[in-house]
Nucleic acid binder design. Structure first.
Lengths: 144, 144
DNA sequence: AATCGACAGTTACCAAAGCAACCATCTCGA
DNA sequence: TCGAGATGGTTGCTTTGGTAACTGTCGATT
């Protein structure tokens, strides 16, 4: 009978690693601004692209529309984001960051990049191959 | 102001990939035996090591004790697992798989290995570096 | 042997995520 | 122009996961 060692099994390892990295990453924005992961993703996406709709945010950040909806509301209550009804289609809303939102983003980004750089530096020469392998796997497991 | 592209950000990419792989993997044991991920982990761990306690399962599969507790109960109700009070310490229970549990495991494992092999094959020469990088990162983000 | 702190495991409670139903609006075709 | 289906977004329900409190047992110290 074939055997399987869980600790060497790829899906398990990816899952474990992803959780650990996410949890550590929370320390980057946690202490100052208490964000959830979906909120962070909405913030980052809006900062990256400027004004856009909830649908577009969800597509770019791989989040279900309910997750986006709730994260948007949370950021709105924090005054980091404003809604503005699109004039040519009143179903959708144009979302954009406010000045405080942009400022918070500006504070988080350098630390986020430093966090990532720290991991890549620890990988040293293995960083490059890892990123290539990641890209290949992302291609194999595309966004739904 | 520094910029961050979410789709290239390592924690995001790991998280996305891990979810996608896990979801695809559910198709491996999903259709025949409807297992959750924690249940699969308990099954795999018990099959790997034979009789052991819930605490030990949690440690090996990186799961919180409540997750283990619930997965164990679910497998017990399915008659895939039996509890047996340890005689030298009545706080802990010796858990082991039943014949049906072992049989289900035996059916799942080859397909799980094939699933993993498929991914690694698609990575081709990038597989080896990926695994090395994974190991390095696991070292950097150890189990709590 | 009585008690205190540690420990295995369960349960209760709360936060987060997904699914499905829903509302409002748009588009397209008769 | 009006009706049917599609679409952006929200809300309610259910499932899942985590934290903390609890139960019962052990080991050690007295």
């Amino acid at each position: 009978m074939s055997k399987l060692a869980l600790e060497h099994f790829l899906p398990y390892r990816l899952n474990r690693l992803s959780s650990a990295v996410s949890q550590q990453f929370r320390a980057v924005y946690g202490p100052h601004h208490d964000l959830t992961v979906p909120e962070w993703r909405v913030l980052a996406t809006l900062a990256q692209f400027g004004t856009m709709t909830a649908k577009a945010i969800g597509k770019h950040s791989s989040m279900h529309k309910t997750k986006v909806s709730r994260a948007v509301r949370a950021l709105e209550e924090r005054r980091w984001l404003t809604r503005c009804e699109s004039e040519h289609d009143r179903r959708e809303e144009s979302l954009s960051l406010t000045a405080p939102g942009l400022q918070a983003y500006g504070e988080i980004v350098p630390r986020a990049l430093a966090f990532e750089a720290g991991i890549l530096a620890a990988l040293g020469p293995h960083a490059e191959p890892l990123l290539r392998a990641l890209a290949l796997m992302e291609e194999r497991f595309p966004v739904d």
